[in-house]
Amino acid sequence: MKARTSWNVVCKVEDLVPESGVAVWTEDGPVAVFYLPHRLPALFAISHTDPFSGSNVLARGITGDIKGEPVVASPLYKQHFSLITGQCLEDETVKIKTYPVLLDGDQIRLEVPVNKQETAAA
């Protein structure tokens, strides 16, 4: 059975920075939301936690594309993470969480699990 989720408002369009990311706090922990205006869709959401350091920094990385794949580079040790799949390009065993994200009027909504404990146990 699919875990119960809900589409929560996390911030407004004016909070976003074009070509870059911001961090938001969700029930599922810190999430990085990126806004790449040249792409369609233009919004991406991945975990804000850098798996290599355990620190919450990924929203502060530089975005770009590697062979067409939209990525962010960790500001600490510079590994690249796909904004679409969360896959680390330098280490195929590392993949971080991604979240469905959409624009609702001037608000940004993220799909997060309703109950954090349940998801963590699954």
Binding site: V17, P18, E19, S20, S53, S55, N56, V57, R60, G61, I62, T63, P75, L76
Partner: peptide, 21 residues
């Protein structure tokens, strides 16, 4: 505005990021 997304985090936030963020 045009330059913000170009910078390394240290330049963006004008301080040096340490290992715990």
């Amino acid at each position: 505005t045009d330059h913000v997304p170009l910078q390394d985090t240290n330049d963006t936030f004008m301080a040096n990021m340490q290992k715990n963020g």
